[in-house]
């Protein structure tokens, strides 16, 4: 019988949340960089897509490290969660490409 079992956010936070602020600023920069690259330059579509994908992947890592506690907690959970996420991302992206090609 334990009464210590209380709210998950019970721990007191101390110090300025630098990690979150930097993460937010980086995310905003990366997002607007993608927009800027589309609206301000006349790149070829292939180049635009490449740049956007690179910016998106970088932002995914920024969020995983700055917001989503990827370095904390049990390894098994982290690997399962990332694995499932990668699986869904693969299904969505590969599936969409396959479907929208109207080739097969």
């Amino acid at each position: 019988m334990s009464n210590e079992h209380t709210q998950a956010h019970a721990s007191e936070h101390t110090g300025f949340p630098w990690k979150h602020v930097i993460g937010l600023v980086l995310s905003l920069i990366l997002t607007f960089a993608a927009l800027w690259c589309v609206t301000s330059f006349a790149f070829s579509p292939a180049l635009i897509v490449t740049v956007i994908v690179i910016l998106a992947v970088v932002q995914a890592f920024v969020q995983l490290f700055m917001f989503m506690h990827i370095t904390e907690g049990s390894k098994v959970w982290q690997i399962t969660a990332i694995g499932f996420g990668a699986f869904i991302a693969f299904c969505v992206v590969a599936g969409t490409l396959w479907i929208m090609l109207f080739a097969l």
């Binding site: 869904i88 299904c91 969505v92 599936g95 396959w98 479907i99 929208m100 109207f102 097969l104």
Partner: peptide, 21 residues
């Protein structure tokens, strides 16, 4: 929950993405 993510085209078979899809 896993399979639910790989069935979505059955809502628009008639779009005609192709026999493979």
């Amino acid at each position: 929950s896993v399979l639910g993510f790989i069935t979505w085209v059955h809502h628009f078979f008639t779009m005609g993405a192709g026999p493979g899809v």
